[in-house]
């Protein structure tokens, strides 16, 4: 028996290492190598509540476990959504999941974007590649209470047009009058009529008042570094640049040691950090 001892304070999740069973409701391809899994509880009906930016550990029985950010609508607690890229053994196994298959889920873990702190402010959501997935719940949250925020822009960059996530939704968002959506790709061909250029080129043109702007940034670390330069150039302060970091994770609860980044456990103090908290570590190599 895995017992919690009386002499130690009880925690919210007494068995954080025990996976709960979830059934695949749907899996659909987003791009040639990414897909979205829709999961529903197979064990109990307890609603799954999470904050935008948090992640789950997804466990394929006998294969392994991977940390994947939650990319669904926090308000729709019956379906758990994860978009991931088929790049490793576990994500490959996930990419072959069929409707009805059962996997294990642990979570939600980590810190969220804290959308509440951006209320009344202008918001820049800067996403690179699959980095849009952990930011999508931010958009859902903001759009559900749009009047509480100032100007809101989504700046999204990807490698090629075929690698853009959530195309139907992007088109819907683009049609909204209360949301600016700018999409750019690093490489374009004649079929692509949108912007070509790196995502950072969208920042100088984004409508916002830098003094009252919160930027939520997620993408590869190099992309985030250049994004920070551009945001700083515009005058967005470091404490209002919020980003999500990635490191190896095995447990998700700060005990396995893998995700250490200087004094931070990315799974606990992160993955979402304010830039002013991590500035010094962000600049160091091989940390």
């Amino acid at each position: 028996m895995l017992s919690t001892l009386d002499s130690f304070p009880a925690r919210a999740d007494a068995h954080p290492m025990q996976p709960r069973l979830y059934r695949a409701h749907k899996r659909h391809r987003e791009t040639p190598d990414t897909f979205t899994l829709e999961l529903e509880a197979a064990q109990d009906d307890a609603p799954f509540t999470f904050a935008p930016g948090q992640f789950n550990m997804l466990y394929v029985f006998g294969v392994g476990e991977v940390p994947i950010s939650i990319c669904g609508d926090p308000k729709r607690s019956n379906l758990l959504l994860h978009t991931t890229r088929d790049v490793g053994m576990v994500t490959h196994a996930l990419s072959r999941i069929k409707r009805g298959d059962v996997i294990g889920v642990r979570g939600p873990f980590g810190t969220g974007w804290d959308v509440e702190r951006a209320v009344t402010r202008d918001v820049l959501i800067v996403a690179g590649g699959i980095g849009l997935a952990p930011l999508r719940p931010v958009l859902y949250s903001i759009l559900a209470q749009r009047e509480r925020f100032g100007h809101v822009s989504l700046l999204y960059g990807a490698r090629m047009p075929e690698e853009l996530l959530y195309m139907p939704e992007l088109q819907k968002w683009r049609a909204r009058l209360d949301l600016d959506v700018a999409v750019t790709v690093d490489r374009g061909t004649r079929h692509w009529r949108g912007d070509v250029g790196v995502v950072t080129t969208l920042i100088p043109k984004a409508a916002c008042d830098p003094a009252r702007t919160t930027a939520f940034v997620c993408g590869p670390e190099v992309m985030m570094r250049f994004t920070i330069f551009e945001l700083q150039k515009r005058g967005v302060s470091d404490e209002n640049i919020v980003l999500s970091m990635e490191r190896n994770m095995k447990c998700g609860i700060g005990l396995c040691g893998h995700c250490q980044w200087g004094p931070h456990f990315i799974c606990r103090q992160g993955p979402v950090f304010r830039y002013n908290e991590i500035r010094d570590w962000f600049a160091l190599k091989e940390i």
């Binding site: 895995l2 919690t4 001892l5 130690f8 999740d13 290492m17 700060g254 005990l255 606990r268």
Partner: peptide
């Protein structure tokens, strides 16, 4: 401190330690 006094505790350690 590592296994018992953080936000999450390691139940395997706790069960042996106590």
């Amino acid at each position: 401190k590592v296994f018992l006094q953080g936000a999450y505790q390691d139940s395997i350690y706790a069960a042996r330690r106590e």
